[in-house]
Amino acid sequence: MLEGPGFDKNCALLEQLMTIAANKQKVIANNIANVNTPGFRRKELKFEEEFLKAVEENDVEAVRQVEGKVVYSDDPTLQNAGNNVDIDKEMGLMNRNSLAYSLYTQLYAKKLEMLQLAMRPT
């Protein structure tokens, strides 16, 4: 965790979003790995409500504590072995999630760049 005058609320926000997106990637990878497992029910990482609440309250500490919860999804079963993983849906979610993660890293990099700019002697 980076601390100091240059690292503001936005950094904490981005750090937390990156952590959550990385965990989400793991949940999606697990769903895809189990596409042929009989009786497997797909899981989702829910964090949005908790996260939004913390952001609206402007509470940095609360933002840093948002981890999200893994819940079983009640999507309809598509295969006959009681497995409700839809591979196309998972691939879409995975792409969206990794793009979001890229966005967070890019924003974070920009933040660091601005810090450097501010420190540069003229």
Binding site: Q25, I32, M94, S98, E113
Partner: peptide, 27 residues
């Protein structure tokens, strides 16, 4: 098909890992 799906998750994850590591390259 399922094998390919797992592979593309790997490829994708690898890419975002290298982006994270790339944060070190700045400065």
């Amino acid at each position: 098909r399922a094998y390919e799906a797992n592979l593309s998750v790997m490829r994708n994850t690898r890419q975002i890992i290298s982006e994270t590591i790339g944060l070190l390259r700045r400065g």
